[in-house]
């Protein structure tokens, strides 16, 4: 009798263990299934194929006078192209890296030091900084100034003062010829 009882109990324990396993396994499967169904619902929000395809533009820079800047639209954002003066290049190159919040030398930020090409979007919360047109405020470092929350960028587009954490972004670009650049 006693023996039989323990046997029974043992097999029940085994059964219990099997049940637990089945329960956990089915929860896990249901979880994976739910995640697999949720993913398309979430991922549809990411950029669509045609949005991604809009990725590159060509710009003629031969008409930009020294000291002038133009703004072009790339991926829905403004891109600043500035033909810098000697003075601006010199002051950008002579800054000590230790003075910078996001240390980067001017050389790293240009292909041809005369032309500074960068995304004209403040790295704080995305406003377009002032300083492209003559007469606009250019901030304390004679580059660009974001009026939204007061970020100052220097003549290399590096953040010098204010809440923005990073330098203005350099988009991927190359010189197709001396007067033509391809952005993206």
């Amino acid at each position: 009798m006693v023996k039989k009882n323990t046997e029974k109990k043992g097999s029940r324990e085994i059964q219990q263990g099997r049940r637990d396993f089945i329960v956990v396994a089915s929860y896990a499967m249901a979880g994976i299934g739910a995640a697999a169904v949720a993913w398309p619902l979430i991922d549809q929000m990411n950029p669509a194929a045609d949005t991604l395809a809009l990725a590159s533009i060509e710009v003629d820079i031969s008409k930009i006078e020294v000291g002038q800047a133009i703004t072009v639209k790339w991926r829905g954002k403004p891109v600043f192209i500035k033909h810098r003066t000697e003075g601006e290049i010199n002051s950008a190159q002579s800054v000590e890296l230790s003075q910078l919040k996001d240390p980067q030398s001017d050389v790293e930020r240009v292909i041809n030091p005369k032309f500074l090409v960068m995304v004209g979007v403040c790295t704080h919360l995305g406003c377009v900084p002032l300083g492209q047109k003559t007469g606009e405020i250019r901030g304390e470092y004679n580059g660009w100034f974001c009026p939204c929350h007061g970020s100052h960028y220097d003549s290399s587009g590096r953040i010098r003062k204010g809440p923005a954490p990073l330098n203005l972004e350099i988009p991927p670009y190359q010189f197709a010829s001396n007067s033509l650049i391809k952005i993206g």
């Binding site: 979430i42 929000m45 990411n46 950029p47 669509a48 949005t51 991926r75 829905g76 954002k77 979007v121």
Partner: peptide, 17 residues
């Protein structure tokens, strides 16, 4: 942010959603 926008800036996909 890219996912919220559905692109590289606030644009038509953003307005739609």
């Amino acid at each position: 942010v890219t996912m919220l926008w559905g692109g590289f800036s606030v644009d038509n996909p953003t307005l739609n959603r």
